[in-house]
Design a protein around this nucleic acid. Structure first.
Lengths: 152, 152
DNA sequence: ATGAGTGCAAATAGTTTGCAAGCTG
DNA sequence: CAGCTTGCAAACTATTTGCACTCAT
């Protein structure tokens, strides 16, 4: 599940086994996604891929295409928008997300099974679930004048 | 936690103890929220409150005001938009949501404590979390020609 | 009478869609 | 050369904001 040597190879294989076509832009977008150590927005992805002149539409469509073949996970933000992350299809997980700088940490903890079981008992099918934890990361916490530190 | 006799009374008390003002519109909106057996959108709320001529802005502002005093819970939908529900502040819970008709079922199961603890260990503060389960409810499932029913 | 609530109009933001042209396998 | 991909422009949708006016306490 880690991004070992085989990671990119398996991702590429997934794409090649699909009707998707690999263009130069998509290659760059994919590289940037794989290189990124954290989920990023469509706009940031475009920058990191070195494609500042490509239309954002292209980025969105590429992400949508990649998502269709199961190699993209979407992380909704608290307010609006979302972040994207390449993952292998089986590597389902959730995140801690800083609501300020959007830094994320992986959350290897999931109730998918449990939740889907309950949902099915209620008559729901095609069950998916959402679970994200939001907060302020260390770097984004407001700096106080050490109010509670008597010694100053 | 149920909507017993005291429910509305406690909700009203919360509002009265706040700087919020109770207008006729807000009264109607609150009544409609309390009367609704499920979370609803701002537009549906306006209808149910019998205020088709009120501006949606008013509905949103009222919901925002109610949310500030802790009596509204927001349920994000999978695609876009969200539903609103009156709840007492302590009554935190999650939902099963039909992605088709937006029917919701209560999910009395929450990992808030666990998640927030983990988040804090990672240095996050002001932690909140999101957890919703989406699927197709019984009424919204596509009708197949009983494909897997040999007997036809 | 002070500050909260309301309506109108317009903006926002992120994402999506239509269509014509360009490229990949 | 079929059909996937791209760009441009425009739409979309749910929600938010500014401002002037009205109303509750």
């Amino acid at each position: 599940m880690k991004r070992d040597n085989g990671f990119l190879k398996r991702i590429l294989y997934t794409i090649e086994s699909s009707p998707l076509r690999m263009t130069q832009k998509r290659e760059r977008l994919l590289d940037a996604l794989v290189a990124s150590d954290r989920p990023i927005s469509a706009a940031v992805l475009r920058d990191k891929a070195g494609l500042p002149d490509s239309d954002l539409v292209t980025v969105y469509r590429t992400l949508e295409a990649f998502e269709r073949v199961g190699i993209i996970q979407r992380i909704p933000l608290e307010e609006s928008g979302c972040l994207f992350e390449v993952t292998e299809p089986e590597d389902h997980h959730h995140h801690f997300v800083c609501r300020e700088c959007h830094r994320t940490e992986r959350l290897d903890f999931c109730l998918g099974k449990e939740l889907e079981e309950r949902a099915k008992k209620l008559g729901f099918t095609e069950v998916t679930h959402l679970m994200e934890v939001y907060g302020l990361c260390e770097d984004c916490q407001p700096v106080h004048e050490s109010v509670d530190c008597v010694g100053g």
